[in-house]
């Protein structure tokens, strides 16, 4: 069997025995899907009321033609939460990946593993994918639940189209996995250098900060997320991912991990 697959299966059989990790993978997407749907539901009767004064001017201007002020407000509010939705592929894998190396070290299981005929690349790719795949799948499943909910809760196809437009599809299906890769590699780098899984988890959450900044920037009206920003984000993420993978391999020094960790 492919050694990368062996590592993925090993990680999953260990990680998903941990209820906290399992809860993160299941509960977070459900929560993040529910929040925008609750908003949609609670604002379903806004009708033609004019809420444009409550929205940033840029958004009010590009609100799809044919939508009432209330429907435009619905789209605006849900868009705020879509950025939170994008945090899923950052948050979910942190627990898995941060535990990945430090957990092995604290169990003293890393030495026999490194003594086996597995290359550093196979080991790290396996650990990467073991954390990225559940995060991406959970995000996509969450998004699917959200999309179905949107279809059920809104009667206007224009609202459905605005909420499921290409910008968010790019964000969820392209930027999401790229963010997961960044998050996992950052976590692996951190966990290669610290001894305590809790420290690794806490340090790894730093990777969420830029997205939080984007979220609050949009709420404050300082930044307005549009397709161009998402495309730039994707380009930047591609570069960051390449750098993170490179650094992750550089940081993972078999000898250092075995001889200096106490």
């Amino acid at each position: 069997m492919n050694k990368i697959l062996i590592i993925i299966r090993k990680e999953w059989s260990e990680v998903f025995l941990n209820r906290m990790v399992l809860m993160t993978v299941i509960f977070m997407p459900l929560l993040f899907s529910a929040l925008p749907l609750i908003i949609l539901f609670s604002t379903r009767n806004t009708g033609s009321a004019d809420y444009t004064s409550d929205m940033p001017a840029q958004f009010a201007q590009i609100c799809p033609e044919g939508l009432s002020g209330g429907e435009c407000f619905q789209v605006y509010m849900v868009n705020q939460f879509m950025i939170l939705f994008m945090m899923l592929p950052l948050i979910i894998p942190v627990n898995i990946a941060a535990y990945s190396i430090v957990g092995e070290k604290t169990q003293r299981s890393l030495e026999p593993l490194l003594a086996s005929p597995i290359t550093t690349a196979e080991l790290l790719i396996g650990k990467n994918l073991a954390a990225v795949i559940p995060a991406v799948l959970a995000t996509w499943v969450g998004f699917l639940i959200y999309a179905i909910g949107v279809r059920i809760l809104t009667s206007n196809p224009l609202v459905v189209g605005a909420l499921l437009d290409s910008m968010w599809l790019l964000a969820i299906f392209i930027a999401g996995p790229l963010m997961a890769v960044l998050s996992v590699n950052f976590s692996l780098m951190v966990s290669s250098r610290v001894n305590d899984p809790r420290v690794a988890e806490q340090l790894s959450t730093v990777v969420i900060v830029p997205l939080l900044a984007l979220f609050f920037g949009q709420i404050a009206g300082l930044i307005f997320v549009n397709k161009t920003i998402i495309l730039i984000m994707i380009a930047v993420l591609l570069i960051l991912d390449a750098g993170a993978v490179y650094l992750c391999i550089q940081f993972f020094q078999r000898e250092t991990i075995l001889t200096r960790w106490k």
């Binding site: 059989s13 260990e14 025995l17 169990q107 003293r108 030495e111």
Partner: peptide, 10 residues
């Protein structure tokens, strides 16, 4: 190895 280093939950 000096310590068994098993996957304790498995």
């Amino acid at each position: 190895t000096e310590t068994p280093g098993l996957y304790e939950n498995l």
